[in-house]
Amino acid sequence: MHVDLRALYPKLIHLMLDTVFVVDENDRIVFVSDGCQSLLGHSADEMIGTLITGYMHPDDLADTRASIQRVMNGQPHIDYRNRYLHKDGSSVHILWSARWVEEERARIGVARNVTALMEAEAELRFLAHHDPLTRLTNRSLFYDRLASELKAAHRNRSHLALLFVDMDKFKNINDIHGHAIGDRVLCVAARRLAGCVRETDTVARMGGDEFTVLLTNIQSVDAIAAKVEWIHKVMNEPLGTEFDGIQMPSCSIGVACYPADGEDADTLLNHADTNMYRVKRRRPIAGDKPALGGGIPA
């Protein structure tokens, strides 16, 4: 039995999960396979006759035009990535394989939706430096930032403060209400801490219910004391009604100042950690000021 393969080609093209485009030298779409519906939300009838540049993400337009010129100069581009706009307004990451056909004076391109892959890659890059639960900076990135800020402080003869924050008796929440509730409380604590600092500062989760806060360009001891008091105030605010009456744990905060309490990351962290446990044992009453390092103007 003879099979006319040429007659099957159009059917095969429309069965492809990727989308096939044919675009003339003026950027006008002359053919697009049915895959465009799932790729960009438009039907083939809607796209044929329109300019392909009209679907490109504005931020990628200049770079995409350079790729188009490369292809039209006879250099196939088989691994080009850019973004297009879906009909619903969302961005679609596309991996292209394209070449120029001189006889037809047209570009042939095959587009693959790699949005999920790009998002997964971005998430992996994020998680390499952030805590997966709270989305805060993780221990590794915090050490890097602390080292960098210490160099800047030494160079600029400026001061910084390191806070070690521990949630008091947090284990009781896990034991009584379960780890799922405990995780939600940790996320609330993380958001509150992050909301207490400037963009130039850093909040990190070091593990469990322990957090660190790096305050840069500190002008006075009073500024540190005010920040610690503010953190206590914010952290002690009641949890929402969705927590069904669970009380937000208080926190103990240890402080270390550069350069008075140390000039390297490990020394400062150890000092702040020791200070925090001293505060926890002392159980200061409301209004007590934390023990702060010297060497900073009052």
Results as ranks from 00 to 15, higher is better:
residue 221 V to C: 14
residue 220 S to F: 08
residue 219 Q to I: 02
residue 185 V to Y: 11
residue 186 L to N: 05
residue 176 I to N: 13
residue 206 M to F: 10
residue 191 R to T: 05
residue 212 T to L: 11
residue 192 R to K: 09
residue 215 L to R: 05
residue 200 T to I: 04
residue 220 S to E: 08
residue 153 A to Q: 05
residue 153 A to D: 09
residue 193 L to Q: 08
residue 156 N to E: 13
residue 222 D to E: 09
residue 179 H to W: 15
residue 175 D to G: 11
residue 173 I to M: 02
residue 220 S to K: 09
residue 156 N to L: 07
residue 195 G to Q: 10
residue 217 N to E: 15
residue 154 H to C: 03
residue 212 T to S: 14
residue 194 A to S: 13
residue 218 I to Y: 06
residue 162 L to H: 09
residue 207 G to M: 06
residue 190 A to N: 09
residue 173 I to P: 02
residue 210 E to L: 01
residue 160 L to P: 07
residue 181 I to D: 00
residue 171 K to L: 14
residue 152 A to C: 01
residue 164 F to N: 13
residue 174 N to E: 05
residue 201 D to P: 00
residue 185 V to G: 08
residue 158 S to I: 06
residue 180 A to C: 06
residue 181 I to C: 03
residue 156 N to K: 13
residue 214 L to D: 00
residue 217 N to G: 08
residue 204 A to H: 06
residue 161 A to E: 10
residue 165 V to K: 03
residue 222 D to G: 11
residue 154 H to I: 07
residue 200 T to E: 06
residue 161 A to V: 11
residue 209 D to I: 02
residue 216 T to W: 02
residue 164 F to Q: 08
residue 206 M to H: 04
residue 155 R to W: 04
residue 203 V to Q: 03
residue 204 A to T: 05
residue 184 R to I: 08
residue 197 V to Y: 01
residue 216 T to P: 00
residue 203 V to C: 12
residue 193 L to E: 03
residue 156 N to Q: 14
residue 192 R to S: 02
residue 164 F to L: 07
residue 178 G to M: 12
residue 188 V to W: 10
residue 191 R to Y: 01
residue 164 F to V: 01
residue 160 L to T: 03
residue 164 F to S: 01
residue 196 C to P: 04
residue 199 E to F: 00
residue 225 A to T: 11
residue 170 F to A: 04
residue 185 V to L: 14
residue 173 I to L: 08
residue 225 A to P: 01
residue 163 L to N: 03
residue 220 S to N: 11
residue 187 C to E: 08
residue 209 D to V: 01
residue 213 V to S: 06
residue 177 H to F: 12
residue 168 D to V: 12
residue 200 T to Y: 05
residue 176 I to Q: 14
residue 155 R to K: 14
residue 207 G to F: 00
residue 179 H to K: 13
residue 173 I to F: 08
residue 208 G to E: 06
residue 198 R to C: 05
residue 205 R to Q: 09
residue 171 K to Y: 13
residue 206 M to K: 00
residue 182 G to S: 13
residue 193 L to S: 04
residue 197 V to L: 03
residue 186 L to D: 09
residue 169 K to S: 14
residue 189 A to L: 15
residue 158 S to H: 15
residue 203 V to I: 10
residue 201 D to K: 04
residue 195 G to N: 09
residue 159 H to Y: 14
residue 180 A to P: 03
residue 223 A to W: 07
residue 217 N to C: 07
residue 205 R to L: 03
residue 202 T to I: 04
